[in-house]
Every structure is written in structure tokens, then in C-alpha cells.
């Protein structure tokens, strides 16, 4: 088996969950790489959307480094602005949204706003929702990319920026007035999680080869649901790695980084 780094594993895993003929909102970085990999393999007619206003670009103009990057708009099919993209999301044109965060809890709620217990006096302030809150609410499914660390997988988020399943009650999202079905997968380099249909709690689905469910639970502050059968995460083949390294991100902007 070919050697790969954690970023390559995350991008490859993200790609596996994207389906042909769908639309996915991506940010720059691993979500975009995942979508490009899917386009080059099993989902050639998958369309990327960037929240700043671009639909279905062909990114052959150099690697964009930010969501507002001008390189995203060229060679797309439709360019408007933020209202347009988020209205497509609300209207039901968007199947998947990739989001991330500083903290996630067992119901898939995410925090990108602050650390601490007081909104006006936070211990640390992060950028804020950006598009994530709206994507978590109304993309049909959200795929969350996180680093697997105890300080990030917490019992309860300090600030709930992007809605997951709330407190796990069956009508939480409906009462919140949001329309998407909620968090679908949580992807890390060592494990993939889903959510239990009944309790809405995070459930281990796949672990990286060589790891045991206990290894994953050790890195998580809340109790995971661990079913009897756990799959091994699929590993990228030599051809997948060639696509990732030579075709998609040849300069290693996103896949060549050291893990922080």
C-alpha cells in the first residue's frame, strides 16, 4: 500500500462520500480537493459551489487560496453573489455542504465563534459563522472535516455556531426552522463518524487501518456510539495519490502541509 499523509487521507475520504450529479458547497482547502478528486474519478458531473457566488467552476487556472479568490470565478457556469448561493441552498439545489470548526459535540453542533462562557467577554474569539451556519442549516447533508483531538471533540460546544442535531431531540431542527437533514458524516484522518438515527448521537463508522475503536474513543471527550461492526477506512490507491499530488494540488498548497 502506498504511503499517504493525513491530508491526503481526509481529501480521499471526503471524495468517497460525494456522488455523481450532485452539487456541493466547498471552501478552499481539503473540501475543494475532495470534490476535485471525485470529479476526476467516480463523479465527473459533480458541481462545486463557492459561497461567494460561483457555481460549477473548472479550476484549471491555478489553485485558489481563499473563498473569495478571483480564480474561482473564471470558467464557471454561473456567477452571482452570496445571496444567490445561499438562496440556492435554501431552495434545495444543494446536496452537500462541507464545513468545519474549532469544536464539535456529540450531536454534530459546531463552534467557530469563541471560547469561554460570555459572548461579550470571550477568552478567545474565532472568525465567526461565515457561511457555515447557513450551510449547516440548509444544505441537504453536511460533511464535517475535523482534526481528531480531545479539545475539539467536546461534550458541549462553548458556542453553538452551526446547527447539528441540537440536543438530540427528534424535532430540534424543525423547531429551529431549518430545512436540511443535518450532519451526515464527520471525517478525520483516523476515523469516520455518522449519527445514530434514533438518538442523533455521533457514532463510529470507520477507523483507519491499524487502529481500534478504543484508540478513537481515547481522543474524544464524549462517549461515542460504537457499533459491533466497524469498517476499515478505505485507503487511497497509487492512482488516487497521483491524481491528488500531480493533477489536483501539484504545488502541495493543501496536501503538502505538516499536520498542526
Amino acid at each position: 500500500m502506498a504511503e499517504y499523509n493525513p491530508f491526503e487521507m481526509i481529501a480521499y475520504t471526503g471524495s468517497r462520500f460525494l456522488e455523481e450529479g450532485k452539487m456541493v458547497v466547498v471552501g478552499t482547502g481539503l473540501p475543494m480537493i475532495a470534490a476535485m478528486h471525485a470529479q476526476l474519478t467516480h463523479a465527473p458531473h459533480l458541481s462545486m459551489i463557492f459561497e461567494v457566488g460561483t457555481v460549477a467552476p473548472i479550476l484549471d487556472h491555478g489553485m485558489p487560496v481563499s473563498v473569495g479568490d478571483t480564480k474561482i470565478a473564471s470558467r464557471s457556469c454561473y456567477v452571482k453573489g452570496l445571496c444567490s448561493v445561499f438562496e440556492l441552498v435554501q431552495r434545495g439545489f444543494v446536496d452537500y455542504g462541507f464545513i468545519g470548526g474549532a469544536q464539535i459535540d456529540k450531536y454534530g453542533n459546531l463552534n467557530t465563534t469563541l471560547l469561554g462562557d460570555d459572548y461579550s467577554k470571550p477568552k478567545e474569539r474565532f472568525p465567526g459563522s461565515g457561511g457555515a451556519g447557513a450551510l449547516a442549516a440548509n444544505c441537504e447533508k453536511t460533511i464535517i472535516i475535523m482534526a481528531l483531538e480531545k479539545r475539539r471533540f467536546v461534550e458541549q460546544v462553548d458556542f453553538l455556531t452551526s446547527i447539528g442535531y441540537g440536543d438530540g431531540s427528534p424535532d430540534y431542527r424543525e423547531k429551529a426552522g431549518v430545512m436540511g437533514s443535518g450532519p451526515y458524516r464527520v471525517i478525520t484522518d483516523q476515523a469516520v463518524f455518522g449519527f445514530d438515527e434514533r438518538t442523533k448521537r455521533m457514532m463510529l463508522l470507520e477507523v483507519a487501518p491499524g487502529l481500534k475503536p478504543e484508540d478513537i474513543q481515547d481522543k474524544i471527550d464524549f462517549e461515542l456510539i460504537i457499533p459491533e461492526k466497524i469498517k476499515n477506512m478505505e485507503e487511497p490507491t497509487a492512482e488516487d495519490l497521483r491524481l491528488l499530488r500531480e493533477v489536483i494540488d501539484p504545488h502541495g498548497y493543501f496536501l503538502g502541509r505538516e499536520i498542526r
Binding site: 459561497e51 453573489g81 452570496l82 445571496c83 445561499f86 441552498v89 435554501q90 459563522s129 461565515g130 457561511g131 457555515a132 451556519g133 447557513a134 449547516a136 442549516a137 440548509n138 453553538l160 446547527i163 441540537g166 430540534y172 431542527r173 423547531k175 429551529a176 426552522g177 431549518v178 430545512m179
Partner: peptide, 26 residues
């Protein structure tokens, strides 16, 4: 959210005092 702020400018542009959005709740 990004939609919230964009929709707020849009409401301003439309001459209406508010706009309904399907996010922020919860």
C-alpha cells in the same frame, strides 16, 4: 451567518424592515 448579513443588506435594498431566513434558528 454570511447569508444573514447578505440578506440583511438585501432587505435594506428591497425597502423592507426584515427578511425571513432559514438559518440562525437553533
Amino acid at each position: 451567518t454570511n447569508y444573514g448579513m447578505s440578506a440583511r443588506f438585501k432587505a435594506g435594498a428591497m425597502g423592507i424592515p426584515f427578511i425571513p431566513t432559514r438559518d440562525h434558528g437553533g
